[in-house]
């Protein structure tokens, strides 16, 4: 049902959802406080042990690929074309020059995306949606709002499944889904019309089902999945607080004397994203090729 949640037994999983929500807030704040590519890179690397601890390395790497696409795009396009750049770093063919200032700007942007993305993925993969809902309720979020959030998580896989059936059903009516671009745009109608109708029907049914189980009853509700803040959470929170204080100290008093960002770092991180991106493309092409041979759809 919950496509992104990975049920595993780990320290991160056993944290209270509230702690993890604060963690996401902390990471977002940090990514803005550490307004320097080198520090952000360090921060990104520092987050990785948490991913390992949560035992979600493989799914994490898969989902972070999409964010890497953004990073590659931002670093390349901004590095060359952003008008704030004045100091050239190196030139690629055709007179396209990467400039220092724009590279700093692009790196900050893309590392920020990756850092926040990592925290978000970590949160979603280690938190059961129901736990999140019940944690929100403990934060005095109205029950129905928590439920809206929860049902959104749950309805996405349902819609995805229905979409697959609808597509098969329309293909069974001789719809060519592998036609030209115009044809594909036209195909959206037979795809989405039944999908919308079915989704509305399902939501309508869901509302009845909820009412049958006294959803709108007034008063306090208990939850099957109880969440509790324990010593582990306090340790984690304290750690975050300490880190935050350190970051602010770094920002306020050390920034002048600390010059970690160099041309080499920027260039290597740019090349790094390119290389990873190149691997992704090769993997994609190989998969397509295999698909053609194996005849998988």
């Amino acid at each position: 049902m919950n496509s992104l949640y990975m049920p595993k037994d780990s320290l991160i999983h056993s944290l209270d959802p509230r702690t993890k929500m604060l963690f996401v807030v902390f990471v977002v704040a940090s990514s803005f406080i550490l307004n320097d590519p080198a520090l952000q890179l360090v921060f990104l690397v520092a987050l990785f042990p948490l991913v390992v601890m949560a035992k979600v390395v493989k799914p994490y790497l898969i989902s972070i690929q999409f964010l890497l696409l953004f990073a590659v795009l931002i670093m390349t396009v901004h590095g060359i074309y952003n008008p704030i750049g004045v100091t050239p770093v190196f030139e690629i063919f055709g007179g396209l020059t990467f400039k220092y200032e724009s590279m700093v700007y692009a790196s900050v942007m893309s590392f920020r995306i990756l850092v926040i993305g990592t925290a978000a993925v970590l949160f979603v993969m280690t938190t059961h949606p129901s736990d999140m809902a019940s944690a929100l309720v403990k934060w005095k979020v109205p029950h129905s709002f928590a439920f809206i959030l929860l049902s959104t998580f749950q309805i996405i896989p349902i819609i995805a499944r229905e979409a697959k059936i609808v597509m098969e059903a329309q293909q069974a009516r001789c719809l060519d889904v592998k036609g030209s671009l115009i044809q594909r745009v036209k195909n959206l109608v037979p795809m989405f019309a039944p999908l919308f109708i079915i989704t509305f029907m399902k939501v309508h049914q869901l509302s009845y089902v909820l009412e049958c189980r006294a959803f709108s009853r007034k008063g306090e509700k208990t939850s099957l999945r109880e969440t509790k803040i324990g010593s582990l959470d306090y340790t984690f929170l304290l750690g975050m607080l300490g880190f935050l204080a350190f970051e602010i100290y770094l920002k306020l008093f050390m920034m002048g004397s600390l010059q970690l960002t160099t041309d080499a770092l920027l260039t290597y991180s740019l090349f790094g994203t390119w290389i990873v991106f190149g691997f992704m493309i090769i993997k994609f092409v190989v998969k397509q090729f295999q698909g053609k041979i194996g005849g998988a759809n």
Partner: peptide
Amino acid sequence: KKERISKLSSRVGYVFQNPNHQTF
């Protein structure tokens, strides 16, 4: 393996269990 679904569908008609998936 070698034919498109749209072409095969003109020979093999498939009626899905739930007509809502097909009608629009």
